[in-house]
Structure formats: structure tokens, C-alpha cells
Nucleic acid binder design. Structure first.
Length: 165
DNA sequence: GCCAACGTTGGC
DNA sequence: GCCAACGTTGGC
């Protein structure tokens, strides 16, 4: 084990669920963009996941929230490690925060790359109805965190459900 | 549109 | 450090 190997060698990807309101940024928007910064996160826990725990190649379950059929609609991947969210110090952005400056960034983001859109969305209703998913964060009452770690077994099952015609 | 649950703010 | 008030999230 060399000093550089901890981060630079291939590792088991981690799995994440990332929420977006489709009226704001949908999986179709990501498909068109191919790769996009996940900006605007203004929650410390979600920031910490992006800044401290996400690695290039991690798998993202793209979740549509606050819409008619909330649920996982496709797959993306983390395209690079976190960097300062410059929209925070832009007073004209959607989520300005004057506490964050280029010298002392408060908020961070990662780039996310489009991978695939599910043939059939795996809706929150489906997840809640299946005991296999019972301890996923997203099905817990009152869970609002917009970026959540997901167990590999849950991610694998959701992806296989979603890909099924 | 309603509203419960949550995270943050700020007075004390 | 407590906690009430407030703004936000997000399912329904």
C-alpha cells in the first residue's frame, strides 16, 4: 500500500440518492447536459456527504421529489470530487449565501454525469410497499435530506427494478 | 394547496 | 446552551 493508493486506486463505488425537483432540474435535463454541477445544496449534512465522502465513479440514484410521482427515475455517476459552489456568492443565483466567499467557501458541489433513465421509475410508493427497502432513509417519515447514502443491496435492487421493461 | 416534520436562527 | 419562532422540504 503506497501513500498515494488510498484515493487514486480503484475502489468500490459508494451509492447515493440525490433528490431534485423535476420542475427545477430533471433527469431529462441531465441527459441533455450529459454532465452538470449539483449546485444549490444548502444543508450541512448533504454538503458533508458531497465534500467528504463522494468519489469519482460513485453511483447516483436520481430521485424526483415534490412532484406527482416521486421516486428514482434513473442513474447518474459522480464525475469528480467536490469543489466550492460558486453560486453561493452570486447574489443573483437561486440560492445566494453571503457567508460563502471565494476565499472561504461554505458550500460545495460535485459534478454529476448522466448514465441512464429507467424504463420504469421506481416510485416512492413501490419502495414503501416492499419490506426489503424498509430501512432506506428515503422511506423514513419526515426524512428531508436531499443527498442520502444508499446501501449497495438497495441500489442494486432499485436499478434492476428500474431497468426492467 | 395543505401541513407535518425538520433544520436553522437568534433572543435570552 | 436552551428553545420558540421561523422558513423549507416534500409527500399527499
Amino acid at each position: 500500500m503506497t501513500a498515494s493508493s488510498t484515493r487514486s486506486t480503484a475502489h468500490e463505488p459508494h451509492y447515493w440518492l440525490m433528490k431534485s425537483e423535476p420542475s427545477c432540474f430533471s433527469i431529462d435535463d441531465l441527459k441533455k447536459a450529459k454532465i452538470a454541477p449539483w449546485d444549490g445544496v444548502r444543508n450541512y449534512q448533504a454538503r458533508n456527504y458531497m465534500r467528504d465522502d463522494m468519489r469519482t465513479g460513485d453511483i447516483v440514484l436520481f430521485y424526483h421529489s415534490n412532484c406527482a410521482e416521486p421516486g428514482v427515475v434513473g442513474v447518474a455517476s459522480v464525475a469528480g470530487e467536490a469543489y466550492p459552489d460558486h453560486t453561493a456568492w452570486d447574489p443573483h443565483s437561486e440560492h445566494p449565501d453571503p457567508r460563502s466567499t471565494p476565499e472561504r467557501p461554505l458550500w460545495y458541489m460535485v459534478d454529476v454525469a448522466y448514465v441512464d433513465t429507467f424504463a420504469k421509475p421506481v416510485t416512492l410508493r413501490i419502495l414503501k410497499a416492499d419490506p426489503f427497502f424498509a430501512n432506506m432513509l428515503v422511506v423514513q417519515r419526515g426524512q428531508r435530506l436531499s443527498i442520502q447514502p444508499v446501501e449497495k443491496r438497495h441500489a442494486k435492487r432499485i436499478i434492476s427494478l428500474g431497468m426492467r421493461k
